[in-house]
Nucleic acid binder design. Structure first.
Lengths: 216, 216
DNA sequence: CTCGGTGCTGTGAACGCGCTGAGGACACCG
DNA sequence: CGGTGTCCTCAGCGCGTTCACAGCACCGAG
């Protein structure tokens, strides 16, 4: 367990408390030191303050994710504005607690993070020169912005989460379209057509009798 | 996306808001209905109220996890006590929001949950230098891609799951063809011929009077 | 060697999958 | 109330896929 916190008293309290729970705890007091430790330490999870000397918590997570490190991050901040929280999460944090926080809650959220354990995926999906940002709801192709409708976006989002895999029309109808409504499979073909016009003809491959596949 | 919430106004508001974000949303109004939907629906994630008729949100998650369902769960509750929150998380929820909540925060937390995907399992069948990937629907022979039609692919798939074993034409008709009664056994011979042309003459052995066998 | 049975393959026709343009239904907005 | 944009259905079409058919090759038994 890695604790990145510059306020010495809080850091020490966290370390003691977590050690009592059986965690092995390292502490870093600055942004750069925390980033370094997270890169090389092989930790199960990280507790990360936002206000740090040298490098903010936001930036730290962003860099970590950009370098393909996916360890669970619980962010701590004195800022309790809704946009602060949303920003922290969209930078790649997995959870966000505002100070002052309850120690009981911190532990429970830590357990939930560790339980899930599975490495997360990037905040921005990228396949080839296609990039899709779920938070900003934007898609670019070779750095040029592409405007998509809600349905087109949802369809591309779903396909980009499993690039290279063949996904059947039924599965797409189930997940991208509302399952309760009865939508004709042809709707999928229509929207694949729309996407092809906007993204390029050969980005979406048809696998006859099976489904569609996003070219990698 | 599954929303389990008995307060009709909130449920409707959530549904509308999430649909505007491009999610396909189903709503369940009672605990048992929500549990059923979560079991069978194949959802990406679930938003779950704690106070529900028939079955509490806590109990719902606990049962779901006991049944080995791991979809991400975001719990909603009017209770903001630290132990309520810890209980919810320890029952198996992945995140916990107290009412009233910010819609912006809800969305950000939902994105964080969805970012962590179920780990993908690469199941690739391999026999000799033949490789078949059911998910990507790709077949390679000595690292060279082979394009197959739907029927050819299904036939090879079935044979590669039992390499070396002799499989009768009737069995192939039953499993690779759906309406075995309507199709002549000769169709199998025809498709074995197609596969031989694409994969190499000696990959598929004929066992006269018994069936076919994939050379190991 | 002969002969019947079994499997192989070229031909061709019907089928149905997927693509597309047109247009209706609907919501939103000025 | 018309304009605009999105969503989705519908019908037609092109073409790849599927499969029956028939003739031929091959195998094994007598």
């Amino acid at each position: 367990m890695l604790v990145v916190e510059d306020e010495a008293r809080l850091a020490a309290a966290l370390q003691r408390g977590l050690q009592a729970e059986g965690f092995a705890v390292d502490v870093a007091a600055t942004g750069p030191a925390g980033l370094d430790a997270a890169r090389h330490g092989g930790y199960d999870a990280m507790i990360l303050d936002v206000m740090l000397p040298g490098l903010s918590g936001y930036e730290l997570v962003r860099r970590l994710r950009a370098e393909q490190h996916w360890l669970p991050v619980l962010m701590l901040s004195a800022k309790d504005g809704e946009y602060d929280q949303a920003d922290g999460l969209d930078c790649g944090a997995d959870d966000y607690l505002t100070k002052p926080f309850s120690y009981v809650v911190l532990l429970a959220r830590l357990r939930a993070l560790l339980r899930r354990g599975a490495p997360e995926r990037p905040t921005v999906l990228a396949v080839g020169d296609l990039r899709l940002d779920p938070a900003r709801r934007r898609v670019t192709r070779a750095d040029a912005e592409v405007t998509l409708t809600a349905r087109e976006f949802a369809l591309l989002d779903y396909l980009m989460r499993r690039p290279g895999q063949v996904i059947s029309k039924v599965e797409l109808l189930d997940h991208v379209w509302d399952a309760s409504l009865e939508t004709a499979p042809n709707a999928v073909e229509v929207y694949v057509g729309y996407l092809r016009r906007k993204l390029g003809r050969d980005r979406l491959e048809t696998v006859r009798g099976a489904g569609y596949r996003l070219a990698t």
